[in-house]
């Protein structure tokens, strides 16, 4: 308990975070650099083709991890917003801001790869099915927070307003998802679920699992890298950032 409390307090300290983020960033980066190529080779070349969708089903190996991550990113933004609202932790705002860009790009990516999958499967680039529509709404939720942040000039108010909007969005996401699924019940069941026993054979879903883990590691590495740079940007004038600048410039 005591350790947890010190950790919580330290989270508020930018130099501590800047320092501790570096080994974690490299750890996640190496993990992603191993898992993503391994999963891609396994999924694209070794896993057997689907008996209905043949080889085109392999798009799920890039599509499903990005789609899962796009939603996880919003979950993280919502939690960061909550932490910022309750404890006024400045680091939570940095996390929110950086996860926003990653999450929006992953959502757009999931929409693009989903549309590429839709072309051979449904014969159309865009189908208003439940998951596509939910993803599109998620993208607009990201855009909304981003636009609100852009519109507010004062950093303090910007942080708090976007934190509140993120929490409101997080509460609404399950309702939106449910309503969209209700609206479009004629629909393929979810390809992959952590809770349910997957209906795919193991040789097909194991590479997917590897890729999901790899993409999580990738997101962790990129997020930490972005947080480190943003901390330097925000704390440019402070003594620790100046020391870091001198260290980097002299090497």
């Amino acid at each position: 308990m005591g350790m947890l409390k010190t950790f919580w307090h330290r989270l508020g300290s930018p130099p501590w975070m800047y320092g501790i983020a570096r080994p974690w960033m490299w750890g996640f980066g190496v993990l992603a650099a191993v898992l993503i190529p391994a999963g891609l080779i396994w999924g694209l070349f070794i896993a057997p083709p689907d008996y209905q969708q043949s080889d085109a089903f392999r798009i799920i190996y890039v599509h499903v991890p990005t789609a899962i991550l796009a939603q996880s990113c919003y979950l993280m933004i919502g939690i960061a917003g909550f932490v910022h609202l309750v404890w006024r932790m400045k680091l939570a705002d940095v996390v929110l801001q950086e996860a926003l860009v990653i999450g929006a790009s992953l959502t757009a990516l999931a929409l693009i790869t989903g549309s590429v999958w839709g072309r051979p499967m449904w014969g159309t680039w865009w189908e208003w099915d439940a998951r596509t529509t939910s993803m599109l709404i998620l993208l607009f939720l990201y855009f909304g927070i981003y636009a609100l942040r852009e519109a507010i000039p004062r950093p303090d108010s910007r942080a708090r307003a976007s934190a509140l909007l993120a929490v409101v969005g997080l509460i609404n996401i399950p309702i939106i998802k449910y309503s969209v699924e209700w609206w479009r019940t004629l629909h393929q069941p979810s390809t992959f679920s952590m809770v349910e026993q997957p209906k795919m054979p193991a040789e097909m879903y194991l590479p997917l699992l590897v890729l999901v883990l790899g993409f999580y590691a990738f997101m962790g590495a990129v997020l930490l890298a972005r947080i480190r740079v943003e901390l330097l940007n925000r704390e440019s004038g402070s003594s620790w950032a100046q020391a870091e600048a001198r260290r980097l410039l002299s090497s």
Binding site: I137, F140, L141, F143, G144, A147, L148, A151, L165, V168, G169, N172, I175, I176, Y178, S179, V180, W182, W183
Partner: peptide, 19 residues
């Protein structure tokens, strides 16, 4: 804030619109 307001709240309106 008119346009921004629309961008922020429209996605949240979707369940109401659907039902």
């Amino acid at each position: 804030g008119g346009m921004l307001l629309a961008l922020i709240v429209m996605p949240l309106y979707i369940p109401v619109l659907i039902f």
